[in-house]
Design a protein around this nucleic acid. Structure first.
Length: 428
RNA sequence: GCCACGGUAGUGUAGCCUGGUUAGCACAAGGGACUGUGGAUCCCUUAGCCCGAGUUCAAAUCUCGGCCGUGGCCCCA
């Protein structure tokens, strides 16, 4: 009986795993350079935690089930809610700002396609405790820096502010629940449906026009000035806009100036409250969003003290896809790897001993197939092992072995006693 | 949830339209030719029609359903 993978899951073969690990390590390293500490949360949580503030779309695509004690359980579809639960449960009294990062798999029951899987990986950070604009700016700067460190070039950063739209809607008389509905439609880009809903909510023509004008503002910093004109008279909205302007000013200090201001970014999760941003890879097709984030409000939803928070998540799989689409070499540098072979089976114990010595410095195989010398060399060649140590009767008499460079074919005798040092000398 | 295209050894494929020998080929893998030197050559071995139902004397081939894959819609990361 042969089994296949569940739909939307993947096996990662050695080559791909190694590439993914390379990307993962750079992401982790960059997060840690900014002072973030890793946390791990359970793969599954209580259903209510996930559904509390996640938005209908996420809810519709949850993997959830009842466990044997009839508890409602959901596989995590993202990390922000679990990490904030962890914060509320365990870390509220830590010094601020608290900087946490995570890397792990998430699950959503969706139709698989390019860049979309039922099990996928996210890497992200949550910055807890600073409500200042420079904190939000640093978080955005971190995403850009991480992508640059990875070698990604063809990406676009869009930054907006949910508060601006919310305040406009509020002044137009739209309640919070309806605001979420409207923001959802904006996020989806469903303009016709949006018009209908705004009509149903009996918005004035002037207010509707303002909303559509705002949504059409996409561009560089000049957009802020245009928005300012549009929002004249709405003090609350102007305050939010000023906040966005401050974040952008700080962003410049962090060396980030290549972005688009876009008020159409509404994000699908209901917990976002302020600055929001998304990053798109220009090289990816249908699923090109590789990062999303912003400032949000969740701690109080989970029974904690209200605290300023912002964060983001990379779609790890999509980042890998984008890097590959740009032809970035994902850590494919040749490793110094060894194979110890022998001229006769009786020398295997000696070969094992020598392999252990080499392993103090390098990855090393010993032939486990009882191959003859020729076959063993062919094997080394076919799997790309660059160096072979040949254990032979003749050389052993002088306590030596042969070190063969598979690329050039050159060979040198090295003494077993100093094998670690001698190998270093020969292969460099 | 919707749409399009697809599924033959580990990989890539021929055969399908027009049903009919033992499903062909290449590469890969393991062994050998070859007892101390690789990428060559030759030989051998292992291994396949996604699943189910229907039509038929006969199904890889035609029909239907399912599963899975790829891409798109939607949504997200």
């Amino acid at each position: 009986m042969e089994f296949s993978r569940p739909r939307g899951t993947r096996d990662f073969l050695p080559e791909e795993t190694s590439k993914r690990r390379w990307v993962e390590n750079i992401i982790r390293d960059t997060f840690e350079r900014y002072g973030y500490k890793e946390v791990q949360t359970p793969t599954f949580e209580h259903l209510e935690l996930i559904t509390a503030k996640s938005g209908d779309e996420i809810r519709a695509h949850l993997y959830h089930f009842k466990d044997k004690s009839n508890r409602d359980i959901a596989l995590r579809p993202e990390f922000t809610a679990p990490v904030m639960r962890l914060y509320v449960n365990e870390l509220q009294s830590r010094p601020k700002p608290l900087k946490l990062y995570y890397f792990g798999n998430c699950f959503r029951y969706e139709r698989p396609q390019s860049g979309r899987f039922r099990e996928f990986w996210q890497a992200g950070v949550e910055l807890i405790g600073s409500g200042y604009p420079e904190a939000e700016a640093e978080v955005i700067a971190l995403t850009v820096e991480t992508l640059k460190k990875l070698g990604l070039q063809e990406f676009e950063t869009h930054i907006g502010h949910i508060g601006v739209l919310r305040k406009v809607l509020k002044k137009s008389g739209v309640e919070e629940n309806d605001q979420n509905l409207v923001l959802g439609l904006i996020d989806k880009g469903e303009i016709e449906e949006l018009k209908n809903v705004l009509d149903e909510l009996r918005l004035k023509e002037k207010d509707k026009q303002l909303i559509f004008n705002l949504l059409n503002l996409v561009g560089r910093n000049e957009v802020i000035l245009k928005a300012e004109t549009l929002l004249r008279g709405n003090i609350d909205a102007l305050k939010e806009l000023e906040r966005l302007r401050e974040v952008l000013r700080w962003l410049k200090e962090f060396g980030v100036s290549d972005y688009h201001v876009n008020f159409g970014i509404a994000r699908g999760l209901d917990y976002y409250t302020g600055v929001v941003f998304e990053i798109y890879s220009k090289k990816l097709k249908a699923q090109k969003q590789i990062c999303g984030g912003g400032s949000y409000s969740l701690a109080e939803v989970f029974g904690g003290e209200k605290v300023a928070t912002c964060g983001f998540a990379f779609g790890f799989d999509r980042v890998v896809l984008a890097l590959e689409a740009e032809g970035v070499d994902l850590g494919a540098k040749a490793k110094k790897e060894f194979l110890v072979v022998m001229t006769g089976e009786s020398l295997l114990p000696k070969a094992i001993e020598i392999a252990s010595m080499i392993r103090n410095r390098f990855p090393c195989h010993v032939d486990l197939m009882r191959r003859r010398l020729g076959k063993a060399l062919a094997y080394a060649n076919s799997i790309g092992i660059p160096f072979v140590v040949i254990v032979g009767e003749e050389e052993l008499k002088e306590d030596k072995v042969i070190l063969r460079d598979m690329k050039t074919g050159s060979q040198k005798e090295v003494s077993i006693k100093n094998i670690e040092k001698d190998i270093l000398k020969v292969i460099e």
